[in-house]
């Protein structure tokens, strides 16, 4: 091929890739810009307007964001701990104990990949209410504590552990749970990391189910609090909504920017079946 033509094509590709990237990131950049300017300046898009932190102060004072943040944090961490324990036990059984009915049980568990708890929102809400868990963080987390996706990922990982390590650990006098804890869990650390990042970002962002279950400041996670705060009928200035939105996503966004590679690798791993 003509070298100048190939050079031209490369240049066009680079420019196209960058234009698409700028287009893709611009809504977020615009929200940043608005959050740091006075509401009037944000609406008139005055580029020379002075910067301000007033919107953040205002949003912080108008709604209990620290409490929402704490709720989300407690929900996400507590849920992740429960998910990991339950998934580890179940995945170990499916990977290493060739028990009767295991195949059918595994297929039934995989149903949750398709039918997630929020699809059956009406009956699940009734169950949570019957258990006396309505309007509680436990009630928001419980339906997701057993994760088919987590069981699936860990089972794949556990299956690749050499059996000889099992036998060696048993010689050393380890029991069933001892082998799981000393041999399997350490070897599956990358899978735990991948699963953890996917789970955290999923439940930090989850909305519909928490909206139905939570009904007070003490239980509302950030997404639900933000939805109430930002609703158009609440008549809050757009700059303040932007500031509140950025505050809500800041912890996750900062974590993502710091651990970009791990995040992207984790999402990649989650798609490989």
């Amino acid at each position: 091929m003509n070298p100048s033509l190939s050079y031209l094509r490369k240049a066009v590709t680079v420019v196209g890739a960058w234009l698409l990237a700028i287009l893709w990131i611009s809504p977020l950049l615009f929200a940043f810009w608005a959050a740091f300017h006075n509401p009037e300046d944000a609406i008139h898009f005055d580029l020379t307007a002075p910067l301000t932190l007033g919107n953040f102060v205002e949003a912080w004072n108008q709604a209990p964001f620290p409490r929402y943040m704490l709720n989300t944090f407690l929900l996400v961490t507590g849920l992740l701990a429960a998910q990991m324990i339950l998934a580890t036990l179940a995945a170990y059984a499916f990977a290493r104990f060739n028990f009767v009915g295991g195949g059918i049980a595994f297929s039934l568990i995989l149903v949750q990949l398709m039918i997630t708890p929020e699809i059956l929102i009406v009956e699940n809400y009734a169950t949570i209410a019957d258990l006396g868990l309505a309007d509680s963080l436990t009630g928001i987390g419980l339906p997701y504590a057993a994760s088919a996706f987590g069981i699936f990922l860990l089972r794949q990982t556990f299956k690749s552990v050499p059996r000889e390590l099992d036998d060696a650990a048993r010689m050393e006098g380890c029991g069933t749970l001892g082998i799981l804890w000393r041999v399997y869990v350490p070897l599956a650390m990358p899978t735990y990391l991948a699963y953890g990042l996917v789970s955290i970002s999923h439940h930090w962002n989850n909305f519909l189910w928490p909206l139905v279950v939570s009904n007070s400041v003490e239980t509302r996670p950030l997404t639900v609090g933000l939805a109430i705060f930002g609703a158009p009928e609440s008549g809050v200035d757009w700059s303040i909504v932007s500031a509140a939105t950025l505050m809500s996503v800041a912890p996750l966004l900062i974590a993502f920017l710091l651990f970009q590679r791990q995040f992207i690798r984790s999402f990649m791993a989650s798609g490989i079946k």
């Binding site: 036990l89 059984a93 009915g101 568990i109 708890p117 059956l120 069981i151």
Partner: peptide, 25 residues
């Protein structure tokens, strides 16, 4: 004991999955 242990290990997850996926369906 592998059948018993297998079922014991999956039971916490299985009970929750049945409660919030199969039973409500």
């Amino acid at each position: 004991n592998r059948h018993v242990i297998g079922w014991l290990l999956i039971s916490p997850a299985a009970i929750l999955l049945v409660t919030f996926t199969h039973y409500p369906a």
